[in-house]
């Protein structure tokens, strides 16, 4: 994702040279999106932190104070402001925050989490480069996902604000329903190209008029 405002330092230049895992698909995402029906984009370089901590322990409570809570059960999402914590396992969480929260861009989230964990039992690992983020939005987003996801995605079952680790198109992803018609998918970087193309293929039919 090249940002081109004359980098002042080599450090900023290095950041501007970052390439996101699905950068090569950006034009395809543009042309493959059907406006007002289903649209796909990559949200690159979000700050992500893997947490392993018992939420009932002292360290867990200190971390919860930083993130705005830790979710209690499968599907749960906690957090405050723009920082969200997704439940991955009984003692495993994924923190998702805007890219500016990363310490390479001057954010303090990682340091705050590191200090909150302290010497408590657990770990916090910067996983920002582990996964990328796809945002699938539109009235047909659910229909696209249903082609490759065995969960019940019907809104009476899957409510907005739920995140589940599962498979989409046979790719392990964390599927986060952020709005009524908006989903975020977190595939690992090496699966991003395949999943991006898989989603484009699944979206293709909605560019054509519906056959009655």
């Amino acid at each position: 994702m090249a940002e081109t405002a004359a980098p002042a330092t080599s450090y900023e230049k290095n950041l501007s040279l970052r390439v996101s895992p699905a950068a090569q698909l950006r034009a395809d995402f543009e042309t493959g999106s059907v406006r007002g029906v289903v649209e796909l984009s990559e949200v690159a370089f979000l700050t992500m932190v893997g947490l392993r901590v018992n939420r009932d322990s002292d360290a867990g409570q200190r971390i919860a104070a930083v993130t705005g809570g830790l979710p209690a059960a499968c599907g749960g999402v906690a957090g405050s402001g723009e920082t969200s914590v997704l439940w991955l396992g009984p003692e495993e969480f994924l923190v998702v925050a805007p890219r500016e929260a990363h310490e390479s861009l001057g954010g303090g989230l990682l340091q705050a989490l590191r200090e909150a964990l302290g010497d408590g039992a657990g770990q916090m690992v910067d996983l920002s480069a582990n996964r990328t983020t796809f945002e699938l939005t539109g009235p047909r987003a659910r229909a696209v996902l249903e082609k490759g996801c065995s969960l019940d995605l019907h809104p009476r079952v899957l409510k907005a604000g739920t995140a589940l680790s599962t498979e989409v198109g046979n790719i392990p992803v964390v599927l986060w329903k952020t709005g009524e018609e908006t989903f975020r998918l977190f595939p690992r970087a090496s699966f991003a190209d395949f999943l991006g193309r898989w989603l484009l293929d699944a979206m293709r039919e909605y560019a054509s008029p519906e056959v009655p």
């Binding site: 499968c74 599907g75 969960l151 019940d152 899957l158 739920t162 589940l164 329903k177």
Partner: peptide
């Protein structure tokens, strides 16, 4: 087999 929301097929 009650499950978290969205967790069943």
């Amino acid at each position: 087999t009650t499950a978290p929301e969205g967790a069943t097929k």
